[in-house]
């Protein structure tokens, strides 16, 4: 598949493709005319150059072209499509905000994509779009754990996901969508991750989970106290440690609000340094 994409891209590096890319970028940046964009979309979507196709799906989302909504799902699932286009398709579905069974199916399927950015984006999109439920929770836990493991999430060694951004995305999704003991255990596993960014997301996820399911409140608080606050370098003002302290304070006062907690995750794609810009 990689080779196919590579050859397709090589063949598309001609002047015509450059012209189409310029056209797509100018439409993306300046055109607000849906008719104008719609006129050019077929040509852009069929381009051999992934950058043109990438801009084209962004244009579809920009004008919210209802006729082409399914195209985003198609692009997300097309394993022959460039990884960045698939990732952006997942992100655009999230931004579009329409959640249908097809979208859920596609995002769940994308959790097993070979390209880590797609898996991470799918997890984040599910966290924002999906409703809490056992079925989706099971898929997330399954993605996290080794099929040969016990699936209860009580041992780090059963974690099969190697990419930390995906693990962080799964923590966010489990915090937002988990409903059972399995999900809670999986978040606890992630809260003991070697990567502090995953631990951070898992800490927020623990609080988020408990804010939705008060039965888990005391255990989530306990788990939060056990989270390793050290971060390898991170920021000189130890924002991570401060945040955990504030989460515990909020929990102590019983003022956890799921809607507020949703905004306390870091969007890792945009860089963890923005942790100090996260609204608190």
């Amino acid at each position: 598949m990689l080779l196919k994409g590579f050859l397709r891209q090589i063949l598309s590096l001609g002047a015509a493709s450059k012209g189409r890319l310029q056209l797509a970028m100018s439409l993306l940046q300046s055109s607000n005319s849906p008719a104008d964009i719609r006129r050019h979309l077929p040509e852009l979507l069929s381009s051999g150059n992934w950058q043109v196709r990438n801009a084209a799906i962004k244009l579809v989302a920009k004008i919210r072209d209802e006729d082409r909504f399914d195209l985003l799902i198609e692009k997300l699932l097309d394993r022959n499509e460039a990884g960045i286009v698939r990732r952006n398709a997942a992100e655009l579905l999230h931004k579009w905000g329409r959640y249908t069974p097809e979208v859920e199916r596609a995002l769940c399927q994308a959790l097993s994509d070979g390209y880590w950015e797609v898996r991470a984006e799918a997890a984040r999109s599910l966290a924002s779009l999906a409703e809490p439920g056992r079925a989706i929770e099971r898929k997330l836990v399954k993605r996290l754990h080794d099929p040969d493991g016990n699936g209860r999430g009580d041992a780090l060694r059963t974690v099969r996901e190697r990419n930390f951004e995906v693990r962080a995305g799964l923590a966010e999704a489990l915090g937002a969508l988990g409903t059972t003991e399995d999900a809670f255990a999986a978040i606890k596993t992630l809260a003991a991750d070697a990567q502090w960014l995953v631990r951070y997301q898992a800490a927020i996820a623990l609080a988020h989970f408990a804010s939705r399911l008060p039965d888990f409140f005391d255990r989530a608080r306990e788990a939060l106290q056990d989270v390793d606050h050290l971060s390898s370098g991170a920021l000189p003002i130890f924002v991570f440690s401060q945040r955990i302290g504030r989460l515990l304070d909020d929990m102590g006062r019983g003022t956890l609000d799921p809607a507020v907690l949703k905004h306390r995750y870091i969007h890792l794609k945009h860089g963890w340094h923005r942790i100090d810009e996260v609204r608190w």
Binding site: L2, G5, F6, Q9, I10, W50, Q51, N54, E81, A82, G83, I84, V85, Y115, E117
Partner: peptide
């Protein structure tokens, strides 16, 4: 990666 394969 980015130009030819379309992935990081």
């Amino acid at each position: 990666g980015l130009r030819l394969l379309g992935r990081r």
